[in-house]
């Protein structure tokens, strides 16, 4: 940062008239919304005969992005705190498996608790290793990615675990609340809570401060180790809920559920304008980042691209968007 930009002879900051506000307005932060609208319009025109704009298809986009959205809300905290969590996808898988197994053994409540326990345990281990031992979160959670998926595969002998409990399935993903799909309600709740906590609570502010300048946060009396622990714990817990949403929607637990979601979630967070270097986070941006990814997936399927082509186009679009949103 340059520290040589004052020439005014007295201590004044330039008045915030409309012109300067416009100039200062960091459009990169809003690139996600522009990108979202552009891509939406593009598909709306291109795919109007394939039913892109039908209410059913639009609801489908929401439904398909719900788990990514939920995971990405937790990921926003982690990235805003200048850490990363690569284990979320496999935590979701492990959680779906544990929920399914506990559900068939002991019933609804133990099932849900088992799922949450996965997030609690994995998140705590991640958090403790990062904050107490100072191991980079990239390495800790990369290791955990393998461990969680391995455990899920091991305890199920790679077999899917069917879930026959209708209450669970209705509650977690298969059901509707009135006309609104349950999955949409779930993501709305996570986004709302996530946004308020990040912007309007001391905890959220301390996460941003820790990510923005850890030393400064430390010298202000913020326990940055605890904050780092907490964001990784939150991320694990949120991922375990996402795992239950997979389980409810697909009415089974399976170790593959959620695999690769960490990359989609990270992409959603970065597309949404959260700084990869920490210190700045936007949950609403994350929501739109996730929706944009969902939109692209959906559009490419409707356009008839096969899955290998989809992957290529998706990757290119993400790189392009991140390049546009990058810092100067």
């Amino acid at each position: 940062m340059s520290n040589a930009n004052i020439t005014a002879p007295r201590d004044t900051v330039a008045p915030r008239n409309f012109g300067t506000i416009l100039k200062e307005l960091d459009w990169r932060r809003y690139v996600i919304y522009i990108g979202f609208v552009v891509v939406f319009l593009f598909f709306a025109v291109l795919l109007r005969d394939q039913g892109f704009l039908s209410p059913n298809n639009l609801l489908n986009i929401f439904r398909q992005t719900a788990t990514i959205t939920v995971i990405a809300v937790g990921m926003t905290y982690v990235i805003a705190c200048a850490e990363i969590d690569l284990s979320v996808g496999s935590v979701a898988g492990l959680s779906s498996v544990c929920t399914a197994m506990a559900l068939s053994q002991w019933g609804l409540v133990p099932g849900i608790l088992a799922g949450l326990a996965v997030g609690l345990v994995v998140g705590s281990i991640n958090g403790a290793l990062v904050s107490l031992l100072g191991i980079p979160s990239f390495l800790v959670t990369l290791g955990m990615l393998g461990i969680a998926v391995g455990v899920a595969q091991w305890i199920t002998a790679s077999a899917p675990q069917p879930i026959l409990n209708d209450t669970f399935n209705t509650l977690f993903g298969s059901g509707n609340f009135g006309p609104v799909p349950g999955l949409v309600v779930w993501s709305a709740i996570f986004v709302a809570i996530g946004a308020v906590v990040l912007n309007r609570t001391r905890f959220g502010r301390q996460v941003l401060a820790t990510g923005g300048n850890r030393n400064a946060a430390e010298f202000t009396g913020i326990n940055t180790k605890r904050i780092k622990f907490q964001v990784l714990l939150i991320s694990g817990m949120v991922a375990s809920v996402a795992g239950m949403l997979y389980a409810g929607r697909l009415q089974s637990g399976r170790f593959q559920w959620g695999s690769g979601d960490e990359l989609s979630a990270i992409a959603a967070v970065i597309l949404g304008g959260t700084s990869l270097f920490g210190g700045f986070g936007s949950i609403i941006g994350t929501l739109f980042g996730a929706l944009l990814i969902g939109l692209i997936n959906n559009g490419l399927i409707l356009a008839g691209l096969d899955s290998s082509q989809q992957q290529v186009v998706r990757g290119a679009i993400i790189i392009l968007a991140v390049a546009l949103a990058r810092k100067k």
Partner: peptide, 13 residues
């Protein structure tokens, strides 16, 4: 209170 030279503010806030 201390006025640190280098690290007591968070640039993103």
């Amino acid at each position: 209170g201390m006025v640190f030279q280098e690290f007591s503010l968070v640039p993103s806030l």
